[in-house]
Design a protein around this nucleic acid. Sequence first.
DNA 1: GTTGAGGTAGACTGATTTGTCTACTTGTAA
DNA 2: TTACAAGTAGACAAATCAGTCTACCTCAAC
Lengths: 184, 184
Amino acid sequence: MTAKKQLLTETALQLFYARGIHAIGINEILAQSGVAKKTLYHHFASKDELLLAALQLRHERFISWLNESLQQATTGDAAVEKLFMALSSWFNSEEEKLGYFRGCFFINTSAEFSDAESAVFQRCQLHKQVVRETIGRYLQCDEQRLNKVCLLMEGAIVTAQVSGGADAACALAVKILSNDKGQG
Amino acid sequence: MTAKKQLLTETALQLFYARGIHAIGINEILAQSGVAKKTLYHHFASKDELLLAALQLRHERFISWLNESLQQATTGDAAVEKLFMALSSWFNSEEEKLGYFRGCFFINTSAEFSDAESAVFQRCQLHKQVVRETIGRYLQCDEQRLNKVCLLMEGAIVTAQVSGGADAACALAVKILSNDKGQG
DNA sequence: GTTGAGGTAGACTGATTTGTCTACTTGTAA
DNA sequence: TTACAAGTAGACAAATCAGTCTACCTCAAC
């Protein structure tokens, strides 16, 4: 991975996440990164390939951030607490690793690539699956409890993005999970 | 509202919802509807204005569908049950009024119009607010309970769109709300 | 120094983008 | 019949889209 390729991927991620995929042209990515067009097409076969690289970069960063946020939790309950504290911080754009909050990059991208057969959509699906597995490693609970946590997490992300009220949404999710604890 | 204007709005909604805003060009809407370009710009000042009309049409249909789905519920609990039954049916594309399920049109559109100042984004915000108020009218509960229901609804919509498992997500949401009932 | 490969620059192509223009048709009212 | 306005048609324009092309540069191996 050359420096230019990294720079292109980084710039693409920043612009795609900030303003969407179809709204960003190749030329804008090139102008901002200062790389030539031929160089981009030397490293990537198409805009979609560049997008896949950007998704991969974001995915690695997000999973890394998630692990860091949860790793000190010793009990499942503490992990839930830490998870939604971290999410709340992300929603308020206070997590340096994740940048300015603009919703979940993978949900946003799914909205633009609806075709379930497309590699881009499938990459978004895979991200959610790995996020679920990562959280599951810290929660030490059954599948149903894990599904509940993930359902509330997605709800919190979308609510924070569209309606605002990030802190309240996270606090509410924690409260729901607390009340639900030990239930069937 | 002339017939052509209605046809344009209808066609725009169909294409925008199916494939996203920036992925659909004006020309495709014109080709599919059989209307001339000048006619479009006679009725709408810009593509954004057409989009706003499409959002309005979808909003009216969605709220109407929501009222129909909930109107026979006599208790708050029954309303919750009915709500998630209806959502499940929507996710499975079995609600004729809402068409083939491709997530929430307003969440999807928000993903493409991040600028909080834009009229489009604000229209999406307003939709979520009215949906919340509409549900609140049937639930007869405090604000916190209503927020919980909405949080889980958003989670279910996104989960159904990206990860699949629509029925399970709705069933889980109902179960959570049942366990949570009467809690602080 | 020579050679060869990997990487880079930016003009160029053809398709497509949103939006404008002039000319035409249609319906209504005097 | 005449006059006028509302609505319509589709060619056209300027900008931008993704992607290609030739020419050049850099640097390591020998």
